[in-house]
């Protein structure tokens, strides 16, 4: 197992803030909008440097999405900022008609996604956003794993033409990816090469997958870990190449098991190479108040649950192998 260490923890939303500033410096057409959550979205630095390119819309997310769509008519590259819940479910129809169907170059940037929002509880902990966004034709969906990757992704989407949903979070998490990385939309990142099982993880679950990989190595299991930062378009080639070797899959995400990364992978497997898959995801429920760590444990999204899922899926793989042999 390749060794990953970190010297610092930071929130991925701060990676967004840093990336937005950099994108703004590189392209004068980059503009930003926020629905009364500037501090939470870490947009202060952009606003300080480019006050005339920032639009405070107040607590009116539907209007924000429409204004963002309009700003593209005239060549602007708008980044909207609010919580993931208010970036998706609250404004689904606005995104669908005025942005996705109209093919507008809007970057929907969503913080405080998933359970790790913590104490505010289920009203704010959206676990359905990846599903909603990936179902929109033409929408690119990205869920980076740490500060550096979120910053790189933010810069990359400014250079990509078309609507994008960028999802990140509230808590501080280890920084373990390179600060000078080039972010390639749609290109999965090989975290660790292995032979026994493919763990496809996204967002905060990538670090948990690394912790799980270390425990699995001690148990003699050689896990391949792949960071699927782009949910759509999915890196189908990377998925198939990995399962050709490992013959079983665990998907890991901070999302409802319905409609998220796991389902995207399952669809690829069932069409091209059916192998056993286990899901590490929220089991079709709402969240609740608690600390991020408590919630990730209670809802089965930590390293320990990834280890359990690997054991289970490997048993299934081996059982299938035996069954095939028996039938010969």
């Amino acid at each position: 197992m390749k060794k990953y260490t970190f010297t610092e923890k930071k929130d991925t939303r701060s990676g967004f803030g840093a990336g937005l500033l950099e994108a703004g410096r590189r392209n004068p057409n980059v503009v930003a909008l926020c629905a009364d959550l500037v501090g939470s979205l870490k947009m202060d630095a952009f606003i300080k440097e480019f006050p005339e390119r920032f639009f405070q819309v107040g607590i009116a997310e539907a209007n924000m999405m429409g204004i963002a769509a309009g700003l593209t008519i005239g060549g602007k590259v708008p980044f909207t900022g609010t919580f993931a819940n208010f970036s998706t479910g609250r404004v689904y129809d606005q995104i669908r008609q005025s942005i996705a169907y109209s093919d507008k170059n809007v970057k929907i940037c969503a913080s405080h996604a998933g359970l790790t929002l913590g104490e505010d509880g289920a009203t704010h902990q959206i676990l359905e956003d990846l599903g909603m966004m990936k179902m929109l034709p033409g929408m690119t969906v990205i869920n980076p794993c740490d500060f550096n990757q979120t910053k790189a992704a933010t810069i990359a989407i400014a250079e990509h033409h078309g609507p994008v949903y960028l999802r990140f979070g509230r808590p501080v998490v280890p920084i373990f990816t390179a600060d000078d990385q080039k972010f390639e939309i749609g290109k999965a990142w090989m975290v660790n090469e292995g032979a026994d099982v493919s763990i496809f993880a996204t967002g905060h679950l990538v670090w948990e997958a690394i912790l799980a990989g270390e425990q699995l190595a001690e148990m003699g299991i050689d896990a391949e870990i792949i960071n699927i930062h782009t949910i759509k378009p999915l890196d189908v080639e990377a998925v198939l190449k990995s399962v050709a070797k490992t013959r079983c899959v665990v998907s890991a995400e901070e999302h409802n098991r319905l409609g998220g990364l796991g389902d995207s992978i399952a669809q690829v497997l069932v069409q091209h190479d059916p192998v056993p898959q286990e899901y590490v995801a929220v089991n079709d429920s709402f969240g609740e108040s608690g600390t991020p760590a408590q919630l990730m444990t209670k809802y089965g999204l930590d390293a320990a649950h990834i280890v359990q899922a690997v054991q289970k899926v490997m048993q299934r793989k081996n059982a299938v192998g035996k069954a095939s042999l028996a039938s010969l």
Binding site: G70, L71, T72, I73, G74, S102
Partner: peptide
């Protein structure tokens, strides 16, 4: 320049286009 039909969205879009014009000195 925009899809419409689901009601209520056009003024927001027009505002965005108007603000882009201002930024562009148009």
């Amino acid at each position: 320049r925009i899809a419409s039909g689901s009601l209520g969205q056009g003024i927001s879009v027009a505002i965005g286009a108007a603000q882009a014009k201002k930024l562009n000195g148009d």
